Simulated scan of single mutants.
Amino acid sequence: MEIAVTGATGFVGSHLSARLLAGGNRIITLVRDPPARAMGRLARALHATGAPREVLTSLPQTVLPVQVCLDRPRLGLEGAAFKRLADRLGTIWHCAGLVGLDTDPSQLQRANVQGTRQVLALAAAGVHRPHVVHVSTAYVAGARRHGLVGEDDLDASHGFLTAYEESKYRAEKAVHEWVLEAADRRVTILRPSVLVTDRPLPPRAPRHPHAVLGARLNLTARRGAAFGRRFGLHPIGDGHHTLRMPGHVDAALNILPIEYATDAMVRLVRPQDAGVRTFHVVHPTNTPVATLMDAMHEMVPWLHLHLTEQRFDPSPAELYVETLSAGVSRYGGLRRRYARGALDAADDHHGIAPPAPLSGDYLLATLRGGLTSARAVPAATSP
């Protein structure tokens, strides 16, 4: 029996694939591109993860790409080909999906919900009834601001801050409904928080949220005085602009290094009885939003962002920064925590220390990781 991975050329899927391949596994990657192009993308993505040379050189022997369309019936395959694929599988890691916070809801529904249903159909068609590992997100907790989110909580009563969160919630609901339809179905749901790396990312490598944010901040830093002129702003005496962002002074986000996260995922996925098991893959310590904002300020030294709980009508410049921040402003009021008892137990069993609280220097490296030396602005000047 073999392992299938969806989303292997993405940020999470490539790190997971590197971990599986380094462990001596062969994998079948379910990809949207023709096989030759998909193998090129996978090789670039694995190289960006820092995968060992032996993993990269052995890809023709250890990886079989199969071109599919995740949101179509039978993954877009002919019936016989779909059944042959299903019968080979003992495990399916479903990592594929859209992650843009501002993506059109219909696209999110098609990719994240319908795509999950088609992967579940593949699992149902297999003679071995493969173990499905569904990579979700801790942000299915939606707009809940306070308290401890349990690993089995799946509650829409607080609403959602983004259509992305809602699509992942609906995907999890689809998983639970599917498991109830037959007695031999097994699913592990993994809920990572915001996954990042401080590794420099080469061109065309998959991006994580902070790399996207860092590229936008770098572009803003380059604009300098043009930013103020565009929005009619007048800098204060030290040449700085101060803009407001909605949020709470004690707000915190859960941010986790991808290297720890994918190792944790592999440790958590073990043989299990029928049913659903859900695990948070999260940092033991939330990162204050203020610490992230300080790192953002390092990227654009002439721009100060000020969290405020007071309602206000955002200026054009503040609206621009809201789009620039890749969704950070929507999470400026969160102070919730996530239970991670299963991961704590797995770490203890393997003698692994959980990651230390994330420093401002680490966050700055995550923001700068997607910049090439030619594009970076080492020290943006005041406008």
Rank of each mutant, 00 (worst) to 15 (best):
A211H: 00
F312C: 14
V282M: 04
H210G: 12
V276W: 00
T308Q: 10
R199Q: 12
E309I: 15
L201K: 01
R216F: 08
R267F: 05
M245G: 04
R199K: 10
E298Y: 01
T242P: 05
L256M: 07
P284K: 08
T242I: 15
A221K: 06
E259V: 15
M245S: 08
R270V: 15
P200Y: 01
I255L: 07
V281A: 11
L292F: 03
P246A: 14
L303P: 09
P257V: 14
H304P: 11
R229K: 09
D238R: 09
D263P: 08
L243N: 05
L256Y: 00
R277T: 15
D198N: 05
L319H: 09
L292P: 03
N286T: 13
R311S: 13
W302C: 01
G214N: 03
R311Q: 12
T287N: 00
M265N: 00
T278C: 14
L303D: 02
P301R: 06
P316K: 06
D238A: 13
R270C: 10
H306V: 14
H208W: 01
A261S: 11
R223M: 13
L292Q: 03
D313R: 03
R199G: 08
E322M: 11
H210S: 15
G239N: 05
P301F: 13
R207T: 15
H234D: 07
Y260A: 12
D198T: 13
F231N: 03
T287P: 03
T287S: 04
H283M: 11
V300M: 07
A261G: 09
L213T: 13
Y320D: 09
E298S: 07
V282H: 02
P288E: 00
T308D: 07
P209T: 11
L253M: 08
N254H: 08
A264V: 14
H280P: 02
H248Y: 08
P203V: 12
P203D: 06
M245L: 15
P257D: 12
G275Q: 02
H283I: 14
V281E: 02
N254K: 03
L305D: 01
E259I: 13
R204Q: 12
H283Q: 10
V276D: 02
V300K: 04
